[in-house]
Write a protein that binds this DNA or RNA. Structure first.
Lengths: 349, 349
DNA sequence: CTGAAAGCGCTAACAC
DNA sequence: GTGTTAGCGCTTTCAG
């Protein structure tokens, strides 16, 4: 069934059918009703490819999730509860605006090509990238493609300094620095002076921010940074687990540990438990992200909540805004983080 | 940049460019190389809409997640860890085969229209639906559209009895009945005779299967079904929470409770805890799905694991298979469930 | 208000 | 081997 068929049945031309479909005003109510009825009867839906080819939008936004986890493992992305919520939130907001969401995950360079192709092949009206590494070249490539592009969790400085094409670019971040500061002030207020960190991926904006805030807080309070207490967790459970094991093999752990995300905090908890270390009696532990499990485990994890839904909403809105004629200016927004005190920390004894 | 531009630059015709792009054999190596080089230089990618319109596939498969949760709440789908893993697994498998995944979630009838449109508007080569209600009419509508369709967790009997168009249809299920049986045999073996259930959505195949197995097990062992112990949780945390509160207001709870999914088991645990009921000392609790949190909470939840990744893989493969010339036969497959004993159950005292 | 016709970018016979 | 041509189904000037 194509528009021509509908036209014939309704006794009008394809142009008129098109006018009805696109809700043009210059169609008499009678004609419109008749056409609409035929369309209804035959379950006609215009072919998207044809519409796009003729100049309409795709009503699809791309969502590309970049992960460093290894390919062979199954369920890698949603193992990370942070990403899963983005996928959910973006889909929800896009759907609410009548758009579909085209998803592709990125583990390898080849996958990255698929992202670029999604733009170049005109499959989407714009795209959102979450979890991007600090890779100016790649981002520049995409930014130069002319389609609306939103980067979630990306260092604005890198964009400014490299004079990236900012015509169709927007960045959505969260206040990771402030959130981490809140955790650190809390821990220090509890009397902790030996505070370790399980850091995230340092090629990620949030990973760096969380680390930098940790370091800044320590220095501000005149606390010593002990190399042995700086664990590189890469945001990954397994890596964090091994790092904590390594930490324990080195001797006495710090009295408190800040983990750059909850997944790692959970892994750390297990590693500690296996060594007979109790949380929070022996060491205080704080995470970041407030994943669902954080409030379910024992002890409940003290952490920082990010307004993922609002961030996703903002990202989707940016795509639409930039899709407009005049909405081509660079924009950037940073969402507040909420510190949540629960049971995994306690005053130093 | 379009194929014509490439053609000019390479000194050939559009046909030849097309032949190169599509890897046709009748192109001399020299010509091919030259064309490929120009394409490379200019970052040319063929317009997907044009290709599709000219008869090629979309290289996109649709994934539609049906949920009954209310619209106003944020993060509704991935609150359900079961769905999140499907999204992950399907995306992973589709991507690995070079396909994008087009996602739309379904909360309302209007959303369902978008699913139908995705097919009718030829946006996808086929679609996967997970979480479908027992709604023969809707499924029939989609099945009749002629595109490959895979139903995950759907009652085959409904398809057979209603003589649905099975030409491009496949069903992927899990052995929920057997899995539940394993839980029940275990509980009964532990000496429990008063076993309650927190049932799921009964308009869902897995919801019914899990309930039916519960009932069958009780009857087989001559145990009495106590109406007060049959809680309708609808697979939702909040509902389950309220149901358990209601149960407690009725007096003494059963000695064991089988929850049709982990999310509800977790909610039940909280509700119990608030009433001073300990798990497993006072009541044994078992779930279903083995979500990440199941093994993190205290006590660790005894549950049943479904091979989500394999199911998703099978679903994606079915789409591709049905996309072939001859692969139009109805297929159905059911994956085994694995019973996992942990710490939330104990012999009746 | 409405129809005719051109064109969107690509593929696939069909000739040469 | 390779170019020419006719669509694929829709939107959109441009006439009338």
């Amino acid at each position: 069934m194509k528009s021509e068929d509908i036209a014939k049945l309704a006794g009008v031309s394809r142009s008129t059918v098109s006018r009805v479909i696109n809700n043009y005003s210059n169609v008499p109510e009678n004609t419109r009703r008749k056409v609409l009825q035929i369309i209804e009867e035959h379950q006609y839906e215009p072919n998207t490819s044809a519409r796009v080819l003729a100049g309409k939008g795709t009503d699809t936004i791309g969502l590309f999730v970049v992960s460093t986890a290894e390919r062979p493992e199954a369920n890698r992305i949603y193992d990370n509860s942070y990403f899963a919520r983005f996928v959910d939130a973006v889909t929800d907001n896009a759907n609410a605006r009548g758009s579909y969401v085209l998803i592709h995950t990125v583990y390898t360079q080849a996958d990255f090509l698929k992202v670029k192709q999604a733009f170049l092949q005109k499959r989407i009206d714009g795209g959102i990238i979450v979890g991007t590494s600090e890779d100016t070249e790649l981002v520049q490539e995409l930014a130069g493609l002319g389609s609306p592009l939103v980067l979630i969790d990306y260092d604005i400085a890198g964009i400014i300094n490299n004079r990236l094409d900012k015509n169709h670019l927007a960045v959505v971040n969260s206040k990771d620095y402030e959130g981490t500061m809140a955790v650190m002030e809390y821990l220090i207020g509890l009397g902790h002076r030996e505070i370790g960190i399980l850091s995230g991926r340092m090629n990620t904006f949030s990973g760096r921010e969380r680390y930098n805030a940790y370091e800044a807080a320590m220095k501000q309070h005149g606390l010593r940074l002990d190399g042995n207490h700086i664990l590189r967790g890469e945001f990954l459970k397994e890596t964090a687990y091994r790092e904590v094991q390594r930490l324990m093999s080195l001797g006495k752990p710090p009295t408190a540990l800040f983990s750059a995300n909850d997944d790692m905090a959970i892994a750390a908890m297990q590693a500690f438990a296996e060594q007979g270390i109790r949380i929070p009696e022996d060491v205080s532990l704080a995470g970041f992200d407030d994943v669902p499990a954080a409030s379910l485990m024992t002890p409940k994890l003290t952490t920082v909540r990010l307004p993922i839904y609002e961030m996703a909403k903002s990202a989707v809105e940016s795509i639409f805004r930039m899709g407009q004629k005049d909405g081509t200016s660079f924009s950037t927004i940073s969402f507040p983080a909420e510190f949540i005190t629960r049971d995994s920390c306690r005053p130093v004894s």
